[in-house]
Computed example of a mutant assay.
Amino acid sequence: MIPTDSKLVYYQALIDKKSEYEGIFYVGVKTTGVFCRPTCPARKPKFENCEFYKTAKEALLASFRPCQRCRPLSHPGHVSELVRKLVGAVEENPEHRWTDEDFQKLSVDASTVRRQFKKRFGMTFVEYARARRMGIALKHIRAGSPVIEAQISAGYESGSGFRDAFSRIMGSAPAGLGNQQILKASWLDTRLGPMIAIADEQALYLLEFIDRRGLEREIERLRRKTKSAVIPGSTPPIDSIERELRDYFEGKLTEFKTPVKLIGSPFQKQVWEQLREIQPGQTTSYGDIASALGKLSAYRAVAQANGANQVAIVIPCHRVINSNGDLGGYGGGLSRKQWLLDHEKNGSVEEDIG
Rank of each mutant, 00 (worst) to 15 (best):
Y11W: 05
K337P: 00
E22T: 14
N93W: 06
C50K: 12
R217M: 12
T124F: 04
G333L: 10
S153K: 09
E101I: 06
K105R: 12
P146H: 13
L222W: 08
I321T: 11
V29Y: 04
A129E: 01
D239V: 13
R276K: 14
V349A: 00
I24M: 11
P76W: 06
I24R: 11
G347F: 08
T39N: 00
H96T: 02
S74M: 05
L61T: 01
K105A: 10
K17T: 08
I198W: 03
D164T: 14
A150S: 15
V108L: 06
Y128P: 03
A292I: 01
S265L: 03
V29W: 13
I24K: 15
F166H: 03
I148N: 11
T4M: 09
Y11E: 02
Y248R: 11
E220H: 05
D326Q: 11
E277N: 13
E157K: 15
E95A: 14
Q68T: 13
T258K: 06
R43K: 14
T55M: 06
G333T: 05
E208K: 14
G333N: 10
T99Y: 08
S234D: 01
I321V: 15
K261I: 01
G328D: 03
A185V: 00
A42V: 12
E220L: 06
V260Y: 10
I2P: 00
C40L: 06
Y26A: 06
I141R: 01
D342Q: 14
L106E: 11
F103A: 06
E101Y: 05
E201I: 00
K57L: 05
F256D: 02
G325M: 13
A301Q: 15
S19K: 15
R71W: 03
G23M: 03
I15T: 04
F267N: 05
L253A: 05
V29H: 11
G33S: 10
D189L: 06
T39Q: 00
G23K: 12
A42C: 09
T39A: 01
S323L: 09
H343Y: 09
C40N: 11
M123C: 09
L86V: 11
R221C: 02
K46L: 09
A197H: 02
I141P: 01
S335I: 01
P194E: 13
K18T: 12
C36Y: 02
I148V: 14
A89F: 07
K184Y: 12
E220V: 09
R133H: 13
P72S: 07
I241H: 01
L206F: 09
R336L: 04
E255L: 08
G347R: 02
Y11A: 07
Y286M: 05
K269S: 02
A303S: 15
I196Y: 02
K85F: 01
S167G: 15
M134E: 12
L82E: 14
G354E: 15
G122K: 12
K85L: 14
T4K: 10
S153C: 02
T112A: 05
R191C: 02
L106A: 10
R243H: 07
G287H: 11
R132Y: 04
Q104P: 00
L340D: 07
N93P: 03
R114S: 13
R115H: 11
E92K: 15
